[in-house]
Amino acid sequence: MEKAQLIELVKSLCSDAEVTEGRQFVEAVVPVKDLHSVAEQLKTDPETAFDFLFCLSGVDYGKELGVVYHVRSTKLGHSIVLKIRFQDRDNPVADSVTDIWLTAEYHEREVYDLLGIKFRNHPDLRRFFLPASAGYPLRKDFVDDENIVVKK
């Protein structure tokens, strides 16, 4: 599917989405509550058939936190980037997409571990790399006096 068509399609799926044509991919910023339904429709619709979630990253944008989903269709070869943003830094909760793409299970655990973003309906949301006492190191306001030296 061409990029322009894809933009139209995503806009029709979710009217609140901000869809832009980025440098490489079509990028869609979706409201947090709509993410799961948009993702599910993108996967199940045979015209889009986005079946391969190849990257899931958590990002701290400073004021807000975000999660970025890079999805590709192995049959049709097109890709899309879905993004969600959380205004609430203290208790960010998103719907898990593990039921759509199974690979999300580990990716979401990683994002939870490093950025503290929680995922609803995740089968096993526990910290992955770090002990429970560690904070969320990929957040920009993370402080670690021992290991991080801030150059003045």
Partner: peptide, 29 residues
Amino acid sequence: GELGVYIISDGNKNPYRVKFRSPNFVNLS
């Protein structure tokens, strides 16, 4: 497998965020 490098830049000499999509992490799952 497929290694993905996802760089978010804010125009500085340091990247704002780098994510490595590591193939082993996914294959382990």
